[in-house]
């Protein structure tokens, strides 16, 4: 048997391997940048809910204010998920035979909570206060997207730390006048953010313990 030597085609293979060696980092960076980002992983989370409640109907078509249901948003850290009784404000009269509303009626009758699935969630080590943001007149839309167009609510923004910091470092583009707080598709006028910033003395902190307490 002859002594082993590498065949000449290894020179062709070498070109392929060098292509691989040079291409692999590009491929990996591209894959991470495209596939392992909030746009791919977080945004678009649209859990199933016990009741097919449509924000597009209530907030969009009927034009109900967000705060009608999420009534604590200006006063508390949590924007309350409305209890069944709030639904019953209307649905005691409207669509009282609807099958879809059966869980609401049952919950109301038995004083049991409806187990909604949370859509927009931050990790438990993040302290977040809705009232602080809403009272600085950050519109609902800034974080929740066009809820008035969502038949079934989904996560519209990444809710990553970078995304939080983007606004904390430069809140001006996200501020709007108080009357437009819950407006959807609202375009703040020129200098509106700057004026609100000045008037409300908006000065969001960026140190660690602002959110990680």
């Amino acid at each position: 048997m002859p002594r082993f030597t590498f065949p000449e085609w290894t020179e062709t293979l070498k070109k392929w391997i060098s292509l691989l060696v040079m291409g692999a980092p590009v491929y990996l960076v591209a894959l991470v940048a495209y596939g392992v980002t909030p746009e791919a992983i977080r945004i678009g989370y649209q859990p199933d809910q016990p009741v097919p409640y449509s924000h597009a109907l209530h907030a969009g078509e009927l034009g109900m204010d967000c705060r009608y249901c999420h009534s604590t948003v200006e006063r508390a850290a949590e924007a309350a998920i409305p209890p069944a009784s709030v639904c019953m404000n209307c649905h005691a009269t409207v669509k009282r035979e609807s099958d879809a509303l059966q869980p609401i009626r049952a919950a109301y009758a038995e004083n049991q909570p409806v187990r909604w699935t949370r859509v927009n969630d931050v990790p438990d080590y993040v302290y977040f206060d809705h009232s602080a943001h809403v009272n600085a007149t950050i519109g609902c839309e800034s974080c929740h997207g066009r809820v008035d167009q969502m038949v079934k609510v989904f996560q519209a923004k990444s809710l990553t730390m970078e995304w939080c910091l983007d606004c904390h470092r430069n809140p001006e583009p996200h501020l709007r006048k108080h009357e437009a707080l819950t407006a959807m598709g609202y375009e703040p006028g020129k200098d509106e953010g700057a004026a609100v910033l000045k008037a409300n003395n908006v000065n969001p902190p960026t140190n660690c313990s602002t959110c990680h307490r």
């Binding site: 791919a40 992983i41 989370y45 649209q46 508390a76 850290a77 990790p123 438990d124």
Partner: peptide, 26 residues
């Protein structure tokens, strides 16, 4: 993943302290 919605939450590869044994409102 970028162009569709999913009814599953994102995978917490390392849950760490994303979910703590404490109870928040609601």
């Amino acid at each position: 993943a970028r162009n569709s919605h999913s009814n599953q939450p994102h995978i917490h590869l390392f849950p760490d302290m994303d979910f703590q044994p404490k109870f928040k409102s609601d």
